[in-house]
Simulated scan of single mutants.
Amino acid sequence: MTRRSCPCGLPETYEACCGRFHSGAAAAPTAERLMRSRYCAFVKGDAAYLLRTWHPRTRPATLEPDPGTRWTGLEILDTRDGSAFHSTGTVEFRASYRGGSLHERSRFERVDGAWVYVDGDFLS
């Protein structure tokens, strides 16, 4: 049996990579890892994780990922700050789906020590 790499694009299995963040067994250590885990949550349709990792001041009341969207890949284009030594960070990425792609620069902050998604700008 072949072990597939995590949908976020890193070589670990889902369980060893984003799965541990989704289950709550660990917290994403950087803004980029949170971005990757959120992309993976979109792939898996895990709205609860997406809401849990969204900044309280910008979080929507509900979120229903489109089950018809087939995400096909994530490319990290740039990261600024967002390490263990920062309180904010940005991640620019391109998320591909069947029929197109989404290019965004996302902003992240730490809340009670945990990285959360604040908002983002769509880029062309």
Rank of each mutant, 00 (worst) to 15 (best):
F122S: 15
Y14V: 06
F108S: 12
Y97E: 12
W54I: 00
D112Y: 14
T53N: 04
R52Q: 13
L74D: 06
S87N: 14
R52A: 14
Y117C: 08
C18P: 11
R52I: 03
D112P: 09
S106F: 03
P60H: 05
T69Y: 04
W71D: 02
A26G: 00
C18N: 08
D81Y: 00
T90W: 05
L102R: 09
G113H: 14
F122D: 15
I76E: 10
G99Q: 03
A28K: 11
E64C: 12
F122H: 15
T13E: 06
T30M: 06
R70A: 11
A47E: 09
H103G: 03
D46M: 08
P65I: 07
T79L: 10
T72I: 08
C8M: 11
H22M: 04
S83T: 14
F108R: 07
D112W: 13
T79W: 06
I76R: 03
E64N: 13
W115P: 08
P65K: 02
P60V: 02
E75T: 12
D119L: 13
D112L: 14
P7M: 01
A26I: 03
F93T: 01
F108C: 14
S23W: 12
C8I: 09
E92H: 15
L63N: 08
E12M: 12
R110M: 11
R36L: 03
E15S: 03
F122K: 08
E32V: 06
S23Y: 08
S23Q: 15
G24W: 09
D78W: 15
S5I: 11
L123N: 01
G99D: 10
S101C: 14
C17Y: 04
T30Y: 05
V43A: 00
A47K: 05
A31F: 01
F21I: 12
Y97T: 06
V91R: 07
M35Y: 05
A61R: 13
D112S: 13
L34S: 02
S96E: 15
R33F: 07
T62N: 08
R94N: 12
Y49R: 02
R110W: 09
T58M: 07
T53K: 02
A61M: 10
A31P: 00
G99Y: 00
Y49S: 04
P67M: 05
T53C: 00
S124Q: 11
T90P: 01
G24Y: 11
H55E: 04
R107A: 12
D46V: 05
C17N: 09
S5F: 08
C6E: 00
T62W: 08
R94G: 04
G100P: 08
Y14I: 11
G9A: 04
T2I: 09
R57E: 13
F93V: 00
F85G: 15
F42C: 03
H103K: 13
L77P: 08
S87I: 12
G120V: 09
G19T: 08
P56W: 04
R52D: 11
